[in-house]
Computed example of a mutant assay.
Amino acid sequence: MAPSFLLSSSRPEAAPETVHGNLGSGQSGSGVFGPEGATKGRGSRAVIERADEAVRNVLTALGRQITGDERVDLARCLPVEAALAFTAQIPATEPLTGWGFVKDIATRTGTTPAVARWDTGAVLNVVARLTGPDLLDRILHRLPEGYALLFGRAELRPRQAA
């Protein structure tokens, strides 16, 4: 099942950095990344809520890894609720490898690395489709090794000697 933020296409006119607020509206019948009606017939409420949670966790973690123009451009590609989750975090001073990224999500969410890897792959594959190949290339160029596979691509750049 695709995360429900895929089903929301609304974007504000303002840049994501200028939009503030809570992710959840607190209203019954709405998911974090889109109205429940958009996913009607595609899964139970618990599955939709779990998908929204996975999207939020992965995008929040990704927000700690991406900086500069790529961060701004990626936020512009995301639906507003997803962009808010992504931009809510200050980037880390030490970027994580792809595997470190997955382990960090597992630790922060109290889940297993296998579940975190599954969630990460599912969310970042969608993000890759939303960004397009040019922006994704720029993002992957700035991230440490191991992220390409998480975005559904082969890791084609050679490892640098330590």
Rank of each mutant, 00 (worst) to 15 (best):
residue 143 L to D: 02
residue 46 A to H: 08
residue 92 A to H: 06
residue 20 H to K: 14
residue 151 F to Y: 15
residue 141 H to R: 15
residue 84 L to T: 09
residue 46 A to T: 14
residue 44 S to G: 12
residue 62 L to C: 02
residue 11 R to E: 10
residue 34 G to L: 05
residue 48 I to R: 07
residue 112 T to Q: 06
residue 134 D to G: 08
residue 67 T to M: 05
residue 105 I to W: 04
residue 83 A to W: 03
residue 88 A to V: 05
residue 87 T to R: 14
residue 17 E to I: 09
residue 122 A to K: 13
residue 122 A to Q: 12
residue 15 A to W: 05
residue 24 G to L: 11
residue 129 R to V: 14
residue 3 P to A: 12
residue 104 D to Y: 04
residue 60 T to D: 07
residue 8 S to N: 15
residue 10 S to R: 13
residue 153 R to L: 12
residue 50 R to T: 09
residue 11 R to N: 08
residue 72 V to Q: 15
residue 69 D to L: 13
residue 78 L to Q: 05
residue 159 R to D: 12
residue 58 V to W: 01
residue 47 V to E: 09
residue 71 R to C: 01
residue 122 A to G: 00
residue 147 Y to P: 03
residue 83 A to K: 10
residue 55 V to A: 09
residue 46 A to L: 11
residue 18 T to Y: 09
residue 150 L to C: 04
residue 154 A to R: 15
residue 51 A to S: 04
residue 21 G to F: 07
residue 116 A to S: 02
residue 96 L to I: 02
residue 98 G to H: 07
residue 103 K to T: 03
residue 32 V to W: 03
residue 157 R to S: 01
residue 156 L to A: 10
residue 114 A to T: 04
residue 101 F to K: 01
residue 106 A to K: 07
residue 70 E to C: 13
residue 46 A to C: 08
residue 112 T to K: 05
residue 85 A to S: 05
residue 4 S to L: 06
residue 28 S to V: 10
residue 57 N to D: 15
residue 114 A to P: 03
residue 54 A to E: 00
residue 7 L to Q: 03
residue 64 R to K: 15
residue 87 T to W: 11
residue 33 F to S: 03
residue 95 P to V: 00
residue 154 A to K: 14
residue 45 R to T: 14
residue 153 R to Y: 12
residue 50 R to V: 10
residue 120 T to H: 03
residue 85 A to P: 00
residue 144 P to L: 04
residue 73 D to W: 11
residue 63 G to P: 00
residue 109 T to W: 00
residue 16 P to Y: 01
residue 107 T to E: 14
residue 9 S to Q: 12
residue 14 A to Q: 14
residue 34 G to P: 00
residue 61 A to V: 00
residue 91 P to R: 01
residue 69 D to E: 15
residue 134 D to S: 13
residue 143 L to E: 05
residue 30 S to Q: 11
residue 33 F to K: 05
residue 46 A to S: 14
residue 7 L to T: 06
residue 51 A to V: 00
residue 39 T to C: 00
